[in-house]
Computed example of a mutant assay.
Amino acid sequence: MTLTSAAPVEVPRRRQGGFVDEMRSVAMKLHTREQARGGEKEAKGPEERSIAKWDPTIEGYLKFLVDSKLVFDTLEGIVHKAALPCYAEFRNTGLERSENLAKDLEWFKDQGHNIPEPSDPGVCYAGFLEDLSEKDPQAFICHFYNIYFAHSAGGRMIGKKVAEKILDKKQLEFYKWDGDLPLLLQNVREKLNKVSEGWTREEKNHCLEETDKSFKYSGDILRLILI
């Protein structure tokens, strides 16, 4: 899929929340009606259906966690390296997940589970993000926003439901944050708005158009839970 083949993005009116509101509006429309109020898509794959209908497995969940860790490792490495100065804005936001995921995988190992190697969905997404970060900052920021903010919302709900089904309700570190999560998110919203202030309207539209690709890559990883 290329950006030129993406459906035209309907840009909402600017509100007090700045460009992040536009990003959120586009992302919400790409949810299915079963996933979220305001979703406009029909569910196709099993991962797009209501979580209540999922039948997760430990093996699949471990694949999901391993691939997720690779993606977060990549994001946090890109931000730390900051090949482009704007990425440095997103260091040490409190939303980082890599260390928490490492603790979770160690816990599973202690329970006697074999930890798999990263699989194709995670490897492909990590490589894509590395490449994108060097040549297309607007598109990269779209992925950064959707990955972190989706995990803080729907991701937490998924973690809770999966834990109820296969982990005796254990809450993993992946779903815990140090500090007040709404405050951490608001801080990152402000940073995203600050970075995007210097973009042209064309660059903003380009960022929004990347949302579909972000959902595709993340959906491929999410689907691993049901393997």
Rank of each mutant, 00 (worst) to 15 (best):
G155V: 14
Q138H: 15
F149G: 08
E48F: 07
L181I: 08
A153Q: 15
D136F: 12
Q138G: 14
A102F: 05
K165W: 13
F90P: 01
I158L: 15
F149P: 05
G94D: 13
H151V: 11
I115P: 02
F108H: 11
Y148T: 13
E173L: 00
C142K: 02
T93C: 04
K63M: 13
S119C: 05
G122N: 02
P46V: 04
I141A: 14
D136A: 14
G112M: 02
I115Y: 03
D168G: 11
C124F: 10
A82N: 01
A88E: 15
D67S: 01
V123K: 08
P121S: 06
T57S: 15
C86D: 09
A163V: 08
L65V: 10
S98L: 01
L70G: 00
D180S: 06
L181V: 11
V66L: 04
R97M: 10
A82Y: 02
E99R: 08
L70M: 02
L172G: 04
R97K: 14
G77H: 11
G94P: 14
K176V: 12
D120S: 14
T57G: 03
K44C: 08
E59V: 10
L181H: 01
W54R: 02
N100L: 13
F140L: 05
S98N: 06
D110Q: 13
A139M: 06
V123F: 02
G112R: 06
S68P: 04
